[in-house]
């Protein structure tokens, strides 16, 4: 927190442009950091000084030299370019996981919360799924289905679903007792309209918050999967598998783990801070509890 710009500095217009007056300084700073990471990563192809896959056996494990601001890895590939491009897949996997698990969790949670008959069965299944350690379940899913991007997304998504289901079910259970839902039922409103017009809007605020936390934890899980050798195949750089490859050379060149680690941590840190800020803004009741 030492880089807080003084009032009237160049950051001011950027912060004002975010138009989130309720957000504290930490969260606004997090938004700026995240925006910078996302833009750099998306424009990676144009910014990167080198192709992230081009090997150069003459320049292996170099320190920062001309043309290679962060040095090179064990194949002589440019670390800066790899970290830039590696972020793309990490972010895509995180985003896809967050969207898919929120959507699936929303549907399953609505069914569990609204139809009493399905509730007991669905919730026992969710209990069982939550009892399986998510990292082990995810590695097993990737190992069995092959190291494709799709199977990594599925592997990270499945363990996240029960948490979303619980959340949605709890919201639906309390909302369906509200007079406006009873009134809608009494008026003969079709089921799908009750669900989409009255119940879904109630779940939005908590789902946005939960979605940001899932985004952060999915990016982290992708890195752990790659690190353990159960991630996306190493031909495509991700923050996780750059670090996994750096393991063997850690003693000679710790930067291979540190640089992608810093990028990853900064990214997750800003997402978490934004999630906290969103929670405080959307649900002030929680603010007191979690501080």
């Amino acid at each position: 927190m030492t880089q807080i710009p003084p009032p009237g500095s160049a950051m001011q217009p950027v912060l004002r442009a975010l138009r989130l007056p309720q957000f504290g300084l930490g969260a606004r700073l997090a938004a700026v950091v995240l925006a910078i990471i996302v833009v750099l990563t998306l424009l990676g192809q144009w910014i990167a000084p080198h192709d992230p896959l081009t090997m150069n056996p003459m320049a292996r494990l170099q320190g920062p030299i001309e043309g290679h601001p962060l040095g090179t890895d064990n194949f002589g590939r440019d670390i800066f370019s790899r970290v830039l491009i590696g972020g793309q897949l990490s972010l895509v996997i995180g985003l896809a996981t967050a969207v898919v698990s929120v959507l699936l969790g929303l549907v399953i949670g609505m069914v569990a919360g609204f139809f009493r008959a399905a509730d007991a069965i669905i919730m026992r299944m969710m209990d069982a799924l939550m009892a399986i350690p998510s990292i082990l379940l995810a590695i097993a899913l990737v190992a069995l289905n092959g190291p494709s991007v799709g199977s990594v997304i599925a592997a990270i998504t499945i363990p996240e679903i029960p948490r979303v289901v619980r959340l949605v079910r709890a919201v639906v259970l309390s909302a369906r007792e509200e007079p406006y839902v009873e009134a809608a039922i009494a008026l003969g409103t079709p089921m799908h309209r009750i669900l989409t017009r009255h119940l879904v809007p109630n779940t939005l605020a908590p789902l946005i918050v939960q979605g940001t936390y899932i985004l952060a934890s999915a990016i982290l899980t992708e890195a752990i999967l790659s690190f353990l050798g159960a991630g996306v195949s190493t031909e495509t750089p991700t923050w996780g598998n750059i670090m996994a490859e750096g393991r063997l050379f850690f003693r000679i060149k710790p930067e291979l783990i540190l640089y992608p680690g810093i990028a990853l941590s900064l990214c997750i840190l800003s997402i978490n801070l934004l999630g906290d800020a969103a929670r405080d803004m959307l649900d002030p009741r929680l603010k007191k509890r979690a501080g």
Partner: peptide, 20 residues
């Protein structure tokens, strides 16, 4: 601050930092 950081830095990065 420590608690937010603890959630954000992957456990293996922490491990290698400690070793380093």
């Amino acid at each position: 601050t420590f608690s937010v950081l603890g959630f954000s830095v992957p456990v293996f990065v922490i491990g290698y930092l400690f070793i380093l």
